[in-house]
């Protein structure tokens, strides 16, 4: 007990540092994947066959392979295969590589959700806009978009909660996120070694954060309840 109380503040401090990195990756991924996903969704919905086939192909590759492998490829491919280590060796390089892999991966998943959302808005909405002389762009931003958002909040919520936990995969390229920080206490870190409880303790962080995310998303869902 005494050792635990001694270790606790040290572990919490280290885990906090790791969790900041986790949150940064989480936030950057959302910021990048929300708009990029929309762009990909437009590609999938394009009437130009070459465009829609190309995006389908990309989505197939990204959804069909493990995110962990994608992380390794994004991080190591430039250096090992192209002999051009664009990421550098430091934590910042690892973070940029992880961000890129996560954004690409999540925007593909988001794009499919967006696509479903756009297609679920009745075609009569677009036609009503057209006969009123609105452009397709005006119709999308003023009519379709909010109706789409309302429909996709539940499936996107699922993805967001998965993303919180998926950030742990970045450990594979040694990004110093919270799992990495917890695991370090097994080998030895901050004068503590052979301790496995810090690793288990990381789950608590995820749990609390996902609780907050869930509440916020439920609030958004309620906010969009004003129309049908």
């Amino acid at each position: 007990m005494e050792t635990f109380l001694h270790q606790l503040p040290i572990v919490v401090n280290a885990l906090n540092v790791g969790f900041v990195q986790t949150l940064k990756l989480f936030a950057v991924t959302l910021l990048g994947a929300f708009p990029l996903g929309l762009l990909i969704a437009f590609g999938s919905l394009s009437k130009i066959r070459a465009v829609s086939m190309f995006t389908s192909f990309i989505i197939w590759i990204i959804r069909g392979t493990p995110l962990m492998i994608q992380l390794l490829i994004v991080y190591y491919f430039p250096g090992l295969v192209l002999h051009n280590p664009i990421w550098g060796g430091g934590e910042q390089g690892r973070f940029l590589a992880a961000s890129l892999a996560f954004i690409i991966n999540y925007s593909c998943y988001f794009s499919e959700i967006y696509r479903g959302g756009i297609l679920s808005v009745p075609v009569g909405q677009t036609e009503a806009g057209l006969v009123l002389g609105m452009t397709k762009r005006q119709i999308f931003f003023n009519v379709t978009l909010l109706q789409m958002i309302k429909r996709i909040v539940p499936p996107i919520s699922n993805e967001i909660i998965t993303l919180v936990k998926d950030t742990a995969l970045a450990r594979i390229i040694a990004l110093q996120e919270i799992i990495w920080a917890g695991q370090a206490f097994m080998k030895g870190s901050h004068g503590i070694s052979g301790a496995i409880w810090p690793l288990f303790f990381t789950a608590f962080y995820y749990l609390v954060f996902n609780g907050i995310v869930t509440v916020l998303l439920a609030r958004l869902e309620r906010k969009l309840d004003y129309f049908r």
């Binding site: 009745p122 009569g124 909405q125 036609e127 009503a128 057209l130 006969v131 002389g133 452009t135 009519v143 909010l146 109706q147 309302k150 004003y226 129309f227 049908r228």
Partner: peptide
């Protein structure tokens, strides 16, 4: 087409009001 369309108005069977 957009300009030409404005010569006509159309009321749909299913109303198609914008719900939001």
């Amino acid at each position: 087409i957009r300009r030409k369309r404005l010569h006509f108005g159309l009321v749909f069977q299913s109303f198609n009001l914008f719900p939001q």
